[in-house]
Write a protein that binds this DNA or RNA. Structure first.
Lengths: 116, 116
DNA sequence: CGGTTAAATAACCATACGGTTAAGTACGAT
DNA sequence: ATCGTACTTAACCGTATGGTTATTTAACCG
C-alpha cells in the first residue's frame, strides 16, 4: 500500500460519521438514503462523505435503477491493520520479556504458516 | 477508547510527515531538532506536527535542559488496531472460495428480494 | 408526456490544516 | 548580564473540510 493511500484512508477514517457508515455497510449493501437515515444531516452532506470514502477505496458504488447501492471495500483497512501492526510491541511491551519473546515467535509463525 | 480519541488519532495519522515522525520515535526518544532533521520543513512546522501528535496522545514530551525530548506513546495505536480488527473478516473473506461464494449469494439475494 | 423518487452537483459559508516568516521564551554557557 | 541554542507562539496565507440550500441529472411510473 502506497503512503498516499494510507493518507486518504486515515483521513477518511478520522470522521465519526464515515466510520459509522462503514459499520452500517458491514451489515450489507445499502442505498444512499438507507445509509443516510440514522444521521441528522442533509443528503448532500451524506453524498460528500460517500465521495470521500469512495476516493479512499473504502466503498464501491453500483447502479441499480435509480439507486446507487454502496458496499464496503476492505482493502485499505488491511493496509491500516498492516501499518499499525508494526507498533504492536509498543503497547505490548509492558508485558515481561517472556511475553515479548512469545509475541515474536507468534508473529513469525503467522508470517510463515499462512492462512486458516 | 472513545470515538473522539479515534477521531484525533486517525486525523494525526493521516499526515505522512507525522507517520514518519512516529516511525523515527519507534527507534528511540529524540529531541525536536533531531526529529526535524530529515524533513525539508521549518522548525515551527515540525512543532505544529508534534502538537497534533501530542494532543492525540501519540507522543509525550519531557524537558531536559533546553531540549524537549519526545517519546512514542502507543496507547491510541492499540485503539486503532482494535477498531480495524472488527473488519478483518472483510479482507480475509475474499481469500477463500467459500467466502466468495457466500458473498455472491448475498448480493444475488439483495437484488431479487427488493427492499423495504 | 409529466410527475415522483434517488442521488449528485453547484454555490456558498465557516472553520481547520499545513505551511511560511518573524518574534518570543527558556535554559545553559561565558 | 548577555549571548547562543532549542524550541514555541503569533500572524498570516492558500487550500481543504464539513456543513447548508438550491438546482440538476437519472431513472422509473402512469
Amino acid at each position: 500500500m502506497t503512503p498516499d493511500r494510507l493518507n486518504s484512508t486515515f483521513a477518511a477514517l478520522a470522521d465519526p460519521t464515515r466510520r459509522a457508515m462503514l459499520a452500517r455497510l458491514a451489515l450489507g449493501e445499502k442505498s444512499v438514503t438507507e445509509l443516510a437515515r440514522p444521521f441528522e444531516m442533509s443528503l448532500p452532506a451524506v453524498s460528500k462523505h460517500l465521495k470521500v470514502l469512495e476516493r479512499a477505496g473504502l466503498i464501491a458504488r453500483g447502479r441499480e435503477a435509480q439507486w446507487r447501492p454502496c458496499r464496503l471495500e476492505a482493502g485499505p483497512l488491511k493496509g491500516v491493520a498492516d501499518w499499525v501492526e508494526h507498533y504492536r510491541r509498543f503497547w505490548d511491551e509492558s508485558l515481561d520479556r517472556l511475553g515479548d519473546y512469545l509475541k515474536e515467535l507468534q508473529s513469525k509463525e503467522k508470517k510463515h504458516g499462512r492462512r486458516k
